[in-house]
Write a protein that binds this DNA or RNA. Structure first.
Lengths: 137, 137
DNA sequence: GTCCGCGTGAAACTCTCCGTCAAAGTCGAT
DNA sequence: ATCGACTTTGACGGAGAGTTTCACGCGGAC
């Protein structure tokens, strides 16, 4: 059960965009792609989803770019994963089989626990102060 | 992020096998497949992995079959998922990008929390007494 | 008008998940 | 001891999702 590269990219880019929050500057795709080592062409799709999901806003034309739609404290890891990956620990079983229902119930409990944990991380925790090349081993 | 059908099958079948623990009887594939609504030919592969992972033991030949290798209390949900799916919330990012390391760190914390939760569920909790057609809506 | 950067859709590639088939092994009966 | 039936064991394809790339249309600023 590995989490997708996509959600990893999204987290990194959003963490980067957090630094722009509060300023008038907008973040550009090329910039974000280079700093966070994300394929630019793929990043376009990701930002599109984040925009449709209401996590960020965009502006077209020359001097266009992206910015967070809300303060970093109000964007949680849960919001990101839910938007990109869909439900966490989604179970496909329709409760078939003699133990199907019980197994589903257990997984629901685990999922609830996981969701709560993810909700406890907000974007402002992603950008630790001075993380730029702090420990470059 | 949906969990695979495979791990769902594995949980259901192991829950079923729990009922055999303590008796001399061995569980047969055909039996398990029918009761838990799992494709028999696929179940073969799953039981093989469970066996190689040391969760169950098998006996070949006529009068062969499967049985739990340990008491149900000593087999946790974590053991099952770890064996079938590999690491939980495995992150592929090598910590690239400016925020890569911090994001990985956060995911590791979430993973630790999830692992702990999974370890708290053991097989004996899967087989609630009289779950056979208890509430058949 | 012209340039720059976002917006959208589709196509190719890779890889894992799901399911199926034939082969090997073991015990009971003859 | 040999045969045969039953069960596990290992190896083999197809489908689908995730990742990446490409090409072109659109909107706003100078």
């Amino acid at each position: 059960m590995k989490l997708s590269v996509k959600v990893d990219y999204a987290c990194r880019v959003l963490a980067q965009m957090t630094k722009y929050y509060g300023t008038d500057e907008l973040a550009h795709i090329e910039q974000l792609a280079e700093v966070e080592a994300v394929p630019a062409n793929y990043l376009v799709q990701i930002l599109s989803e984040l925009r449709n999901g209401g996590l960020i806003i965009s502006r077209r034309g020359k001097q266009g770019g992206y910015a967070l739609a809300r303060p970093p404290e109000e964007i949680t890891l849960y919001d990101i994963v839910k938007l990109i990956e869909g439900d966490l620990l989604e179970l496909n079983g329709t409760g078939e089989g003699q133990s199907g229902r019980r197994v589903n119930q257990i997984w629901r409990e685990v999922r609830t626990s996981l969701e709560e944990k993810c909700r406890s991380y907000s974007l402002d925790m992603f950008a630790v102060k001075g993380d730029d090349e702090m420990y470059y081993i």
